[in-house]
Design a protein around this nucleic acid. Structure first.
Length: 824
DNA sequence: AGCACGCCGACT
DNA sequence: GTCGGCGTGCTC
């Protein structure tokens, strides 16, 4: 009786529904385990690394089954907690397993084959060849192994397959699929003294033998010095250390190696900055903080999520540190989530000081290799196992934890926790709560301005609410002064975008040697061009937006698709006049401020100027060390940066924040404005906030002024209930895209009709979004509202099935259907 | 997601 | 007439 064949269900990193089943080759039956990576053939020529999620004996029917090519790992790289978590993400956020895998596994651990062409022999020159063949050969003779992609780029031939087939037939080239490993451990070369040269006698003898090679003699002496050696034992030193000494010469070094006096050794080293020892303790808590900590513990014992509602600078971080320490002493892991933007040197430094090499960092500004190493640390791979705490951005929820005791979600209300592109469109705060459930771990949500969903959960008793109302060192809350823009414009008092009040206060604060932060919401503040004569405005060819003027490059750029053109010399429409700039950006404010305050150090802080981790940190450190006086920035400046000497925060225009057409607009405005205001007046000093708006009577502005979170919450929660929005209803936004607008409209209408057939749910739309065309894709949105009273997963399943049918139905070919659960 | 196959416009 | 543009369907 032949033994039963084994099969594996495998997730591949693709946006397709379901998994793929492969046969496990007889010899590999014992090796493969769930969670391991394997290489499998896919389609005509490709190979991918996929992850095994199920092993079984039932051969699938309906297609020819192929075999796993090889097993990559000797241990699972995805554990069972992760697989359960992936499952939930897919089910809740209506996305495919491959999409979840893509978000979870660092790209350094993913493999994909590429076509590689190699030159086998140089053909006879007098053979008649086509010009394409000649071009290909020229490149191939220069680089005799090259990927198909590169070859296409270098020759400019779009479809070289035909010519390559010909060359292959003639035996000139060979074509193969090659799988590249992307992650390589970092190594450093260490230098040691060869054993044969050890001992005083041998060394003396050796040193005397360099009569005609003084450079080698000096270098060896320098090495012995550096390596702090006795004649009998020399420690190894890094090659780069030796290279730094003045005696170093490459030829002498090579000679010493060749003579077997020095020996080289490659050692794997970490890319992570792991400091060995903690150098400080968590600060002792104030009585208020201690009280809060006790309350948090009480919530944990009751199995509830703790919401720590602490005003700015009430010292939430210190409470976290005490909680972390507790978990570590229990041998548990901790996940500490922060919104991307706040992951600055400040908090990283503090965490490392207190927890040493037990603390690891994980976010998108880290390199691929660093991410793989952190991932391996959590898996506990060969010697890498020190990390117990992860400080990370949203994607850190996917790391291979196996023993989580606590998850902290700081600045819980931040919308950067929600991923909107690409799938999985998950919310890290919500996902973290589910993840904690899988591990039996506790959760703390911390914020000064809770999201209304979270606050609702706290008031209804689902979460436990803990208030922390006292500011550190009894710093007083800043004074907020409102400037009525409409009135100021009417009285012609405005100087560009600055009211006299704001300019005066800036001047005064600068005189007191204090610093200023100016906040400006980016939306609606880009610079564009307009024809002086006919009013024509340059639009993107492919998107429904005007192009933004970039002064430095002298170009007009589309912020949605990247399309860019040079600034035309005259209006292309009427040919009568030139174009002039309209609107204003942070650059312009910087320019104007420089005129008003020529002696002040002004710095712009937005995604353009803070591109890399380095630039970003430099701006912050310069401001911290008071090398700059005025910081102008977008939302970036509102996020948890602690500065000590900010006398004034100016909000240039709150209007377009308030007028944004979204049910969360007031919630977000309040959060943003109070967070920005909170930057004013740290450490013993009361600060001032100048808020410019043309709508001073607005309820948000009123409550920012009185710092009344409760009031704005009560107002908005009533509206949410009335208009059927979260937290009373769950939302799914379906975004439909099609090249052809008529097909799109028809599909959207039919889908909305069909969706309304599902019992219990409400449909809004279809409607066009604000930007109704991006990259030549026309867009329509349908909003589904699901009441809390009906079964969520059954409803979602029905909806998802319907959506999938639209994707393939013959009638609406080419329709893209993108579900976004709990959209922002 | 990539890759192949297949059907139409624009150049030799 | 061919080349190559893109739209469509499929991958265990």
């Amino acid at each position: 009786m032949a033994k039963k064949d084994k099969y594996a269900d495998i997730i591949l990193p693709l946006s397709v529904s379901g998994t793929f089943t492969y046969k496990i080759p007889d010899g590999l039956g014992e090796q493969v385990k769930i969670g391991m990576r394997v290489i499998v053939p896919f389609g005509q020529k490709k190979f991918y690394s996929g992850i095994i999620i199920r092993l079984h004996h039932s051969p699938p029917e309906g297609f020819k089954i192929r075999e796993i090519k090889s097993v990559i790992d000797s241990f699972p790289v995805v554990n069972s907690f992760q697989l359960d978590f992936w499952n939930w993400i897919g089910k809740y956020y209506l996305c495919f397993p491959g999409e979840v895998m893509n978000a979870s596994v660092p790209s350094g651990l993913k493999m994909e084959s590429e076509t590689v062409i190699s030159l086998k022999k140089i053909p006879d020159k007098n053979i008649r060849t086509e010009p394409e063949e000649l071009k290909l050969m020229t490149v191939l003779e220069y680089r005799d192994r090259i990927s198909l992609k590169d070859l296409k780029k270098r020759t400019g031939i779009k479809n070289p397959e035909k010519w390559l087939d010909g060359l292959k037939e003639k035996g000139i080239i060979s074509v193969e699929e090659q799988i590249k490993e992307r992650y390589h451990p970092k190594t450093e070369t260490y230098i040691g003294l060869n054993d044969a040269c050890r001992g005083k006698d041998k060394l003396d003898h050796l040193l005397n033998s360099f009569g005609r090679a003084p450079k080698q003699y000096n270098l060896l002496l320098a090495f012995l010095n550096l390596s702090d050696s006795t004649p009998d034992s020399t420690s190894r030193i890094k090659k780069q250390e030796l290279r730094a000494v003045p005696e170093f010469s490459d030829s002498a070094f090579r000679a010493l190696v060749k003579k077997n006096i020095l020996k080289l050794q490659n050692r794997e080293v970490t890319r992570l900055e792991l400091s060995e020892k903690p150098v400080s303790e968590p600060h002792p808590l104030t009585p208020m903080q201690q009280l809060a900590l006790d309350e948090i513990r009480k919530s944990f014992r009751a199995g509830k999520v703790a919401l720590l509602h602490g005003i700015t600078s009430s010292g939430k971080t210190e409470i976290y540190f005490h909680l972390i320490k507790e978990q570590l002493s229990l041998g548990k892991q901790v996940l500490y989530l922060l919104p991307e933007i706040v992951l600055t040197a400040q908090i990283v430094r503090r965490l490392k000081a207190v927890f040493g090499n037990q603390a690891g960092i994980y976010h998108s500004r880290y390199s691929d290799a660093e991410r793989v190493e952190t991932y391996y640390h959590l898996l506990g791979v060969s010697g890498k196992n020190s990390i117990k705490i992860i400080l990370g951005a949203r994607s850190a929820v996917f790391l291979p934890f196996n023993n989580l005791g606590l998850i902290i979600v700081d600045e819980e209300h931040e919308n950067t926790y929600k991923q909107s592109e690409p799938a999985p469109r998950y919310h890290a705060r919500d996902a973290a709560i589910v993840l904690a459930g899988l591990h039996g771990a506790d959760v703390v949500l911390g914020t000064a301005t809770p999201s209304f969903e979270t606050y609702y959960n706290a008031l209804s008793g689902k979460y436990n609410l803990i208030r922390l109302n006292e500011r550190y060192h009894q710093i007083e809350l800043p004074e907020v002064r409102i400037v009525n823009l409409r009135e100021q414009y009417r009285k012609k008092l405005m100087k560009s975008h600055f009211s006299p009040v704001l300019l005066n206060e800036i001047r005064e604060v600068l005189q007191k040697k204090q610093q200023v932060i100016l906040f400006q919401n980016r939306r609606g503040f880009s610079l564009y061009l307009e024809c002086v004569s006919c009013g024509w405005i340059p639009y993107c060819r492919r998107c429904d937006v005007s192009l933004t003027y970039h002064k430095q490059e002298g170009r007009l750029v589309c912020h949605y698709c990247g399309y860019s053109i040079r600034v035309p010399g005259e209006c292309p429409e009427c040919h009568e006049a030139a174009l002039r700039t309209r609107g204003f950006g942070t650059e312009k404010i910087e320019e104007e401020l420089a005129v008003f305050f020529p002696d002040a150090g002004i710095v712009r802080f937005d995604l353009d100027t803070a591109h890399s981790k380095k630039q970003y940190e430099k701006i912050i450190i310069d401001f911290e060390e008071e090398k700059t006086d005025i910081l102008i920035g977008t939302q970036i400046v509102s996020k948890g940066l602690d500065f000590n000497n900010v006398g004034l925060v100016g909000i240039l225009n709150a209007d377009n924040l308030l007028n944004f057409p979204d049910f969360r607009a007031y919630e977000r405005s309040f959060q943003l404005l109070s967070q920005v205001a909170g930057r004013a007046g740290r450490k013993y000093k009361k600060g001032l906030v100048v808020l410019q708006t043309s709508d001073p009577e607005n309820i948000v502005i009123k409550n920012v002024l009185s710092n009344d979170y409760e009031a704005i919450y009560k107002n908005q929660i009533a509206e949410r209930k009335l208009f059927k929005y979260p937290p009373f209803y769950r939302l799914i936004k379906i975004s439909l895209r099609h090249r052809n607008i008529d097909i799109l409209d028809a599909a959207a209408k039919e889908m909305a009709d069909e969706l309304s057939g599902i019992t219990g749910i409400h449909i809004l739309g279809p409607q066009y979004p604000i930007i109704r065309r991006v990259k030549n894709w026309n867009i329509q949105d349908i909003l589904i509202k699901i009441p809390r009273t009906i079964h969520l997963y059954e409803t979602k399943k029905k909806v998802h099935q319907m959506l999938l049918n639209y994707g393939i139905a013959g009638k609406y070919k080419g329709l893209h259907v993108i579900p976004d659960v709990d959209p922002y």
